[in-house]
Nucleic acid binder design. Structure first.
Lengths: 291, 291
DNA sequence: TGCATTACCTGACTTTAGTCAGATATTTTT
DNA sequence: AAAAATATCTGACTAAAGTCAGGTAATGCA
């Protein structure tokens, strides 16, 4: 990483917090404490929620939230209602007045964005919008975390099932594998890595030990919403690193002929095509990489 | 302006305040109230300042600032000294300890930036840094304001003198015009527009009435530090609009052969070359645009 | 010289944001 | 049915941030 990259990021951070952060806050508070404004904004964007979820999302203390809600309830902005299933818990909903407040915030956000772009000509505006899109996408990509996960966790299940669903859609003859067993993704036989974006599981990939010096990479899948962010590449990096750590000197993998992007990626990453090494009926190509 | 542009700006604002604004603040406070941290940061970046300037820059109440300074002085972070010229006013300087604190913030900023980039691969990192640079430059461009200015104000003088200095450098035979008189940039004969970025004058341009339906655009200059931001184009827009407002149906302008970028811009903006319309000894090309 | 102005300081507030230890009511578990 | 666990609320705090009305000393001006 170059020092001028760091400097660029710092300049960016400084300018952007100054121009957008600071201004945006006061702009959007509308004479109301920021805490209250944040709450209304959150409720307006997400509809009804139970308090626990709200507390979690905004990172608020339970006592503090309770008081904020009481105050906003008093202002007629929102309503609290007991949940039917659980008499202890409550749901919050914006009232009509609350929805109006929210849409005022919404309009202000629009105005703020519009004023930001207004001084620029068409060409500059387009460049700015495009660059913002790029920064946004890459900042998102940068906050993806990858970590080992138990293969039987709910998130792991969700990813693996989505993967199977996609195989069934894409393979010419469908896919009849059912659900994967967790055994060969559980140490010390195998490992499952899960990628998360803001807590949500968006990708997975597994490594299985074939023998003392050989690993096999399997079930690399990225959620359609997270594609184009380089997550697959980072997963492969981590899986290969993991293979190295457990003593592998080479990794193998197979793929179906319909998964052309996957094949291209393997070649780009230094895998070379080899002969059939397993009896996977869905595999058409087999690859190897020396570590 | 397209509605999807606005949406992109809003998504960008949201993500960036979340990822950079919020995190950055707590990251940089170092267990110190944010107000104090901001003060140290400001002093570290700008060196010694008098209180009035500091108050203005940070937007603080005089009483509040006074207390903040007292507290930091007590911690040995800064010193207040009476000004020699004015016994009422004071200057603030960081002590050695203060400078150390500042450089700790500096290191933290670096770390923060580094951590942001760390998860990305080379290609993605380069794209992100490039896009950040683009956003930064264009946000800066977007905050340039253009307004009429008295031709004899200090800022106007500075711009016009810089313009003359540049002409003297670039014209093959030098430039012997001395300083411009303010008469033909003063209404109702003429007008001077000044462009500012964060309060600093960075560009100027003048319009002079030649007759009832003819205006002349003169002295369009952009500070070298502000070039490439499209300021010249925006100045021309405003000058032409102004010409329209005062009843002009065409605008004229002349230029020297060494100012090739200017000539290219005039052609691109719809000016067409005409014969000599004045006796300016430094002019080699004459242009006209119908409004 | 004396009066208005200025630059900053002090004291006495308020609001916002947040923490924490129980209290209360309602499930869930045993 | 009693005990344990939950979900939220209440009361009693604290720190930070900010406001405002004078107060004091130095300066500028008539």
């Amino acid at each position: 990483m170059q020092s001028q990259d760091i400097q660029q990021v710092r300049r960016f951070n400084r300018l952007v917090t100054q121009r957008i952060g600071a201004l945006g806050d006061s702009y959007l508070a509308r004479g109301r404490p920021l805490g209250e404004a944040r709450l209304i904004f959150e409720l307006g964007s997400s509809g009804a929620t139970d308090l626990a979820a709200l507390r979690q999302r905004l990172g608020l203390d339970s006592g503090y939230l309770s008081r904020l809600l009481r105050s906003l309830e008093g202002q007629g902005v929102l309503e609290l209602r007991k949940k039917a299933e659980d008499g202890r818990a409550r749901d919050v909903v914006l009232t009509e007045k609350g929805r109006e407040e929210f849409s005022a915030y919404d309009t202000l956000s629009d105005t703020f964005a519009r004023d930001l772009l207004a001084p620029l000509g068409d060409a500059q505006r387009q460049r700015l919008v495009a660059a913002m899109g790029e920064v946004e996408q890459l900042l998102r990509a940068a906050s993806v975390t990858i970590a080992p996960e138990a293969a039987d966790s709910a998130d792991a299940r969700r990813c693996l099932d989505a993967y199977i669903g996609e195989l069934a859609d894409r393979f010419e003859g469908g896919f009849e594998g059912g659900s994967f067993g967790t055994a060969d993704m559980t140490p010390p036989v195998g490992w499952l890595l899960l990628a998360r974006l803001d807590g949500e599981a968006i990708a997975c990939g597994a490594l299985k030990r074939l023998d003392a010096t050989t690993g096999e990479i399997k079930r690399v899948w990225v959620s359609p919403t997270a594609r184009g962010m380089g997550v697959a590449g980072r997963l492969m990096d981590r899986l290969e690193a993991l293979a190295g750590e457990i003593g592998c000197r080479r990794v193998l993998l197979d793929t179906n002929r319909t998964l052309t992007e996957a094949k291209a990626m393997y070649l780009k990453r230094g895998y070379s095509e080899i002969g059939r090494y397993n009896d996977n009926p869905y595999a058409d190509h087999w690859f190897e990489k020396r570590l």
